[in-house]
Amino acid sequence: MPDRELSTTGYLSLGLLAAHDWSAYQLAEQLGRGVAELWPSADRGRYAVLNRLAELQYVDTRQEHTGKRARTIYSITPAGREALAAWLTTPPRPPSVEFEGMVRVLLADQGSLDDLRMTLQRTRESALANREMFARYAAYISATGGTFPERRHLFALANTFMIGHYDHILAWTDWAEQQIAGWPDTVTPASANGEQVRDMLAPGRDVWEQGHPDGA
Rank of each mutant, 00 (worst) to 15 (best):
T77G: 02
R52Q: 07
E55P: 09
L84Q: 02
V49A: 04
A36Y: 15
Q121N: 12
A48L: 15
A127N: 07
A108D: 10
E100G: 10
A108L: 04
S96Q: 12
L116M: 14
Q121E: 12
R124V: 04
V49Q: 03
T90E: 12
D115T: 00
E98K: 07
R52L: 06
R62W: 09
A83Y: 00
L53E: 05
R104A: 10
G34K: 04
P40R: 01
W87V: 05
T123S: 12
Q121Y: 06
Q110P: 07
S112L: 05
S96M: 07
Q121C: 02
V35T: 10
N51P: 01
R62I: 06
S126K: 04
D43M: 15
Y47C: 13
T72W: 00
L107K: 05
D43R: 12
L107E: 10
P92V: 04
L113E: 01
V103A: 13
A83N: 01
A48D: 07
T61H: 07
W87E: 11
L88E: 13
D109L: 09
V59S: 06
S75R: 14
E100N: 04
Q121A: 08
A79F: 01
P94D: 04
N51I: 12
D114I: 00
T61P: 01
L53F: 13
L107A: 07
L113H: 06
L88K: 15
Q110N: 14
V49W: 00
E64A: 02
E125G: 06
A108S: 14
E64F: 00
I76Q: 05
G101I: 02
A129F: 11
E82R: 10
R52K: 12
A54T: 11
R124L: 02
E132F: 09
A108F: 05
Y47N: 13
G101M: 05
A129D: 07
S41R: 05
T72F: 06
I76V: 12
A70K: 13
A48Q: 10
A79L: 13
N130G: 14
L113M: 10
P91I: 10
A85P: 01
